[in-house]
Amino acid sequence: MRQAKLRTTQAAAPVRKRSRWLAVAHANSGVLFVLPAVLLFLVFGLYPVIYSFVLSFFRWNGFSGFSILPFACVAPTCSFVGFDNFKEFLFANPITAGMFRQAIWRDMFLLTTVTGGTIVLALPIALALNQGVRGQSLFRMLIMLPMVTAGIAVYYVWTFIYQPDGLLNSVLQMVGLGAIGAKQGWLGTSSLALPSVAVVLIWSSVPAAVIFYLAGLQTINAELYEAARLDGANSWHLLLHITWPLLLPITIIIVISTLNAIIQSSYQTIYLMTNGGPAGSTTTTGLMVFNYGFGDQRDLGVASAMAWMLFLALAVITMVNLRVFRSRT
């Protein structure tokens, strides 16, 4: 760097302009590393996002008559409606608005329980695997299995497990806790369905979280533990004061990837397991967006508007989370 600067000052006058440009280019040359990613992002990431944002101010049936490049909105299949789509589910239509508010609460429930549950399960498992337990490679394989188990099988098996005469009720009966079993099935009872879905989501996101934590644990220098042990720290102290803080960046990754999974794919789980029921108790925003997008009451403008509200809410939550995490480190 310094060498380069020296060179520019020494250079003759006609070359100076070119050199200054070179210096700026050089200072920003890191951008070349991110260029492929950015190009892809602009075309396949940003463009559809802008499209859906613009669409949230239109009413459109999804088949033809609307495009962004070049811009077109042809009546009657497409029409500009301003903020009507947002108004519809925020306050104008009491039924939709009521459902949307409840859906947001369910999202919050899922976001907190699934991210929390995933971390609470994945960290001890990763620590245990990292200890060099007997048969650890077998365990690692078994614990990763939910990742490769095909989607449709997962839903089917869990539905079986949750049935009135299913595995969960039978196990509870066996250990003498039959009374807390769900007589009408875990997915058939409004108050239990959403927590039951959360369990499935946790179950499927734990393996990836374990992988992340295992990768993170490898980067922790063993000497740190040695030194702390010599200072008389017990295992709990080690966990609390060395492992957890050092794994915090990993935890943030897990939180974000779990949020991502809930937003991008939880609607599929819910659609296949409960279809939003019983009595709407598992209807999340994602499912509502899906139903407006491709269900029988299709209105892609409303779907986009809802997605954007969800995004705004999540962006705020994520920012706050990141701040809190950062400030603790």
């Binding site: 990431g45 996002v49 937003i263 994602g286 997008g293 962006a315």
Partner: peptide
């Protein structure tokens, strides 16, 4: 280092939170 690095990164991360259902058609 380059100009706008952190803002760009944030843009990438934000993409995680946009429900993919709505971007299928575009």
């Amino acid at each position: 280092h380059f100009w706008g690095r952190d803002a760009l990164f944030l843009g990438f991360v934000a993409l995680l939170l946009i429900p993919s259902v709505t971007v299928l058609i575009p």
